[in-house]
């Protein structure tokens, strides 16, 4: 028996995304309060804040779904981080939608803005005015990883909902349920190791689960195999070139390769470097690991502030070249002395 759904497969993070609020298995407090809005068919502007993969976007869609039914997208304008959301878009597209006449059967329309913290201050100001002017017909749901980067006047106009990082049991239970739906063999230690590598980010956990399942079954060794394969070898090369060879220009070329050909962002690379720094296969002193980690944190902070990936990571490489200077002066025991 062939049909599209037997032949084609989706990403599990999409396939098993809760469609309705009642399907959401965690963030109980948040969900309960949102369900009140559905019941009363009224709500204020909302700001969903919390780390990635904790259900913010899912909750927003589920809320709209429960308010308007299957065709909820008719009444919702959704602008993702990848969409253009400069001040012009706010003044034209968003404004058009926000002021448009209210369909007879719904209490209000919804504008959903993902990663609102990445919008410029100008665009946020423009947004604030729209939130005021059209509040009778349109409600805004803003989603942010870092609520502090949403301007104060917007924060004060929104009911803020904090999404906590998911607990281990929540993640493992959900993963186990997906495995049973998919008829995939899994063991608890495998699922726990997925939680270890994804740290309370459900979307990431489900993606790792699907990749591990594609290797056969979900066990510890497949999980780590997947994570290892998904980390480009260049990340470790970057660390080693800068520290042990002190070759800044070569390291910078590797960095560019990672960014341009793999399309990794600066923060991605910092995170992966962080993992490498504590890997036993990188033979450096414990003190140095900590010192590098501290600087990685600083770089990530600057990147989150909006600084340029290449310049900040080059500054990091320059720091590594300097930190590696004593290592290069005496031959490394595990490596043959060079020069």
């Amino acid at each position: 028996m062939s049909s599209r759904s037997t032949l084609a497969e989706l990403l599990w993070a999409e396939k098993y995304r809760p469609r309705s609020l009642q399907d959401m298995v965690n963030q109980e407090d948040v969900v309960r309060r949102l369900q009140v809005f559905v019941k009363e068919r009224n709500m204020p502007h909302l700001l969903f804040a919390g780390p990635p993969g904790t259900g913010k976007t899912t909750a927003a869609h589920a809320l709209a779904h429960d308010l308007y039914g299957e065709d909820y997208r008719l009444y919702m304008l959704e602008l993702n981080a990848s969409d253009e959301r400069g001040i012009d878009v706010i003044r034209t597209k968003v404004k058009e939608f926000a002021r448009s006449k209210l369909p007879a059967n719904v209490p209000f329309k919804i504008v959903l803005l993902d990663e609102a913290d990445n919008m410029t201050a100008d665009a946020q100001q423009a947004l604030r005015r729209l939130m005021e002017m059209y509040v009778d017909v349109t409600r805004f749901i803003l989603i942010a990883n870092y609520p502090s980067k949403v301007i104060e006047p917007i924060q004060s106009r929104c009911a803020v909902f904090r999404f906590a990082s998911l607990k281990k049991e929540d993640v493992v239970t959900r993963l186990k349920w997906i495995c049973s739906q998919e008829r995939v063999a899994c063991d608890d230690r495998g699922l726990e190791s997925i939680y270890e590598v994804s740290g309370g980010d459900m979307r990431k956990a489900i993606n790792v689960l699907q990749a591990a399942a594609a290797l056969g079954e979900v066990n510890v060794s497949n999980v780590y195999k997947v994570v290892g394969l998904a980390t480009p070898a260049e990340v470790r090369a970057l660390l080693k070139t800068a520290l042990f060879e002190g070759d800044f220009l070569k390291a910078r070329d590797t960095l560019r390769k990672l960014m341009v050909t793999y399309g990794l962002s600066g923060v991605d690379i910092v995170r992966q470097l962080h993992r490498e720094v504590f890997s036993p296969e990188v033979t450096i002193s414990e003190e140095l690991r900590v010192e590098i980690a501290d600087y990685l944190g600083e770089v990530q902070y600057r990147l989150v502030e909006g600084a340029d990936d290449e310049i900040q990571l080059s500054a990091l490489l320059a720091k590594l070249v300097l930190l590696g200077k004593p290592l290069r002066q005496q031959p490394q025991p595990p490596k043959p002395a060079r020069r």
Partner: peptide, 18 residues
């Protein structure tokens, strides 16, 4: 996945490659 393209690139695409 209703996520940003940068999440797609950093979190999802490497796993798809695997």
């Amino acid at each position: 996945l209703k996520c940003s393209t940068s999440t797609a690139k950093s979190d999802v695409m490497p796993l798809l490659k695997v």
